[in-house]
Each structure stands twice: as structure tokens, then as C-alpha cells.
Design a protein around this nucleic acid. Structure first.
Length: 269
DNA sequence: CGGGGCTCCTGTGCGC
DNA sequence: TGCGCACAGGAGCCCC
């Protein structure tokens, strides 16, 4: 579900609302979402902890706690973190706070993950992440170097978190449309001008995604349970058979690496 | 090693 | 109406 812009939106919301708040109790309604440690230990070590800092890398949210430990959240497809005045019905884990409110961890499909660890940055998944696309160091030149020798199709490559961090199926499709590049193009065949356009497009769609508080296609909501609005600005994602916003040609949908992929067969080359 | 396919789950929407 | 299947924004694993 949530990609970089959605996780960043949640991070900003929770940072505003929860910094300094204290966990009174943890209710585990489905222990499956807790990857480490075991649920009882997870609860014990979180009780009494205060939220100190909210960080993000790729689609991972890391919450620094007063105990020195890190609460690491990956929302995967359908995870939600909602600070609210009530317990939410579909919650899998509820953090009861001393302010009388609740941080609800919801996750319809049970793919999302919670972890309590001593150092989130040493997690294997985090260690293996590619560059942050919105970081200053991520230049077009750097992107060009990364693409060299990659024979794979550009679209699945953009989804590879070890290649570049934080892009998911929605923003990958939008960035390729914006840069007028076919999702099936071989990464190492892209010309200099195309790489520049794609680099700019990636940054643009991610920044706009953040600006519009994420894309609420299905069930994404921000840290306060509110929908984003970037879904209203999407050009190709989930628009199969609709006319292209630029040339009116029918948007096509194909399957790449098991993921649906929409594009304009006329604008994208 | 890269790439394809399957897997973890629940829910929805479509075609027959 | 009802059923079965495909598909959904992620990523790890196994296999070749």
C-alpha cells in the first residue's frame, strides 16, 4: 500500500501528534504482525516508553523511544497507523497512550510488520536499501551510474528496493509516464536525456505525492485517519482503457514481474 | 547473479 | 443471485 510519500505523510503527522506522548499499554489483537520479539515481551518492553523521534527510510518508519529501543513499522500493502480518540474495530495492535487516546495499527491483509529492536538501521532490509530518491546526493549522474549494466526492464527495476528505495507500483508507473518512457525498456538502453527525464520525474511524483498527502486508492489513510488526494492527479495508474490525458490514446495495461503496469502506448517510447 | 513464480493474507469486483 | 477467479499499493524465498 503505502509508498515513500504515504509513509512520509504518516511520519510527519505522527511526529506532530505523538512526540513526547507515553505508551500506557499495548493491546495485541493479532500477534502475527509482531515479528520480534514475541508479543508478551513486545508489550512488556513498550509499556511506559515515550515517543521521541519519527524517522523514515524508504517505506520503513522508525520510531525512536525513550527506552533507547526503536519501534520499526513496515506497512506493506494495507497497513495503517492512526492516532485517534478511539480504538478502531479492525486494529491488529493498539497502543494505549497516557493522553487517553490510541495509536491504532490496522492491517487488513496481515502482511505488515512491527518490530522492537535496539537499532533499526542494522536491520538487514534497511542495510540493503538503495539510495533515497529525494536525498541531495541522488543526482542524475548517480542514477545514470546505477543504471549501467542493468539489463532488466526499467519498471521492475524501479520497484527493487535494493536498487532505489521507496518507490512502489503506483509511483513507478507515474514516473515512467511523466518521463515518456515505456515500462518495458531495458534499463541499460536508456539514453542520457531519458535518464535525466526519469530522474526528474521520480523526484517530481514523489514530491507531489507528499504535497498531496499521498494516494488513497484503496485504503491508505494518513496518521490521523484522513485520505490523501494524489489519487485525483494520477495520469496512468489504475486508468486502463481510459484516454491518455495528453493524447487521448487508450491507456494499456500489461503485467511486468507479476505487477499490473499501465502506460500510454503513444506518449511513452 | 538475475529473473520468474509463488507465498504470506483478506476483501472486492468482475464475468459467467 | 451466486460462485469462482483474478487482482490489489510489498517483499522474501526458492528455483532454474
Amino acid at each position: 500500500m503505502p509508498e515513500l510519500p504515504e509513509v512520509e505523510t504518516i511520519r510527519r503527522d505522527l511526529s506532530k501528534d505523538l512526540k513526547g506522548k507515553k505508551i500506557k499499554d499495548v493491546e495485541v489483537l493479532n500477534p502475527k504482525v509482531i515479528k520480534e520479539p514475541k508479543a508478551a515481551e513486545f508489550k512488556r518492553r513498550l509499556k511506559g516508553a515515550t515517543f521521541k523521534q519519527f524517522l523514515r527510510r524508504a517505506k520503513v518508519l522508525a520510531i525512536k523511544l525513550s527506552t533507547g529501543e526503536d519501534l520499526v513499522v513496515h506497512l506493506r500493502m494495507t497497513g495503517q497507523l492512526v492516532y485517534a480518540g478511539k480504538r478502531e474495530e479492525k486494529a491488529r495492535v493498539i497502543f494505549v497512550l497516557t493522553d487517553g487516546k490510541y495509536l491504532n495499527f490496522n492491517d487488513q491483509r496481515l502482511f505488515a510488520e512491527l518490530r522492537l529492536v535496539s537499532d533499526w538501521q542494522s536491520l538487514k532490509f534497511v542495510q540493503g536499501l538503495g539510495p533515497e530518491p529525494l536525498a541531495k546526493g541522488f543526482t542524475a549522474q548517480k542514477f545514470k551510474q546505477l543504471l549501467e549494466g542493468k539489463k532488466t526492464k526499467i519498471k521492475p527495476l524501479l520497484l527493487d528496493q535494493t536498487f532505489i528505495a521507496g518507490i512502489g507500483n503506483l509511483y513507478a508507473q507515474e514516473a515512467l509516464f511523466l518521463s515518456a518512457i515505456l515500462p518495458t525498456r531495458a534499463a541499460n538502453q536508456l539514453k542520457g536525456a531519458e535518464i535525466k527525464r526519469l530522474h526528474r520525474a521520480i523526484q517530481k511524483v514523489l514530491q507531489e505525492g507528499i504535497q498531496y498527502h499521498g494516494s488513497s486508492i484503496d485504503n491508505y489513510v494518513n496518521g490521523r485517519g484522513k485520505k490523501g488526494s494524489y489519487q485525483l492527479r494520477l495520469k496512468v495508474y489504475a486508468r486502463k482503457d481510459e484516454p491518455c490525458v495528453k493524447c487521448r490514446t487508450k491507456i494499456q495495461k500489461i503485467n511486468l514481474g507479476g505487477r499490473g503496469t499501465c502506460f500510454c502506448p503513444r506518449c511513452q517510447k
